[in-house]
């Protein structure tokens, strides 16, 4: 098990190997499909993208006294092409669920970034690891807006590492 604190460095990325459990503490940002289509067109982002972590999530509305609602991952493949310009600007970690394209994996390795997964459908569990959420950009997108999350020991697994390993292909389901 590896503990990571944000922002993420190139050295952190080199230490991550497929299948390993990772606990992230610090600041991460949320973005899904619609936020990505806008982020890639921005000249100046309202947060530091270099060394950053983006979590693919659209939470449920939060109750009074809660930091956030249910916050499990959404399928990452929809962001495959949209993630490339952000990695080129220094995005280091993407968190979501499910396999992604070969093209994405190639770009990810080229940009010295990694892809982590969390347990899909575990929205309540993930929510318990998020201590604070603040709106950063695109309020009109509602659940799809960009939020800044303060997380503690946010549990993930390394799905793709920079050494070309893939958790979905290395498992025992090769055809």
């Amino acid at each position: 098990m590896i503990r990571l604190n944000t922002p993420i460095t190139d050295k952190d990325i080199r230490n991550l190997k497929v299948g390993e459990k990772v606990l992230i503490t610090g600041t991460i940002y949320t973005a899904r499909d619609q936020a990505h289509t806008r982020l890639i067109k921005e000249e100046n982002l309202e947060f530091e993208i270099a060394g950053s972590v983006i979590y693919y999530v659209g939470p449920t509305p939060k109750r009074e006294g809660y930091a956030i609602g249910a916050s499990g991952p959404t399928s990452s493949y929809r962001m495959d092409k949209l993630a490339v310009p952000l990695m080129e600007k220094g995005l280091k970690i993407m968190i979501g669920k499910g396999d992604r394209s070969e093209e994405f994996r190639h770009e990810m390795i080229k940009n010295n970034a990694v892809y982590l997964i969390t347990t899909g459908g575990a929205g309540a569990l993930m929510s318990s690891k998020i201590k604070k959420s603040t709106l950063v950009m695109y309020e009109d997108l509602g659940a799809e807006a960009v939020y800044k999350l303060e997380v503690e020991d946010f549990p993930c697994f390394v799905a793709y590492d920079i050494y070309g390993n893939n958790i979905f292909k290395d498992s025992n389901h090769e055809k």
Partner: peptide, 24 residues
């Protein structure tokens, strides 16, 4: 570990008043 997460999640949802999944 993933199946444990799913089991723990439904306990937190029930007791903590948080939906099981963000995709409701």
């Amino acid at each position: 570990s993933i199946l444990s997460d799913i089991l723990e999640n439904q306990e937190i949802a029930k007791e903590g008043n948080i939906p099981l999944c963000q995709d409701t």
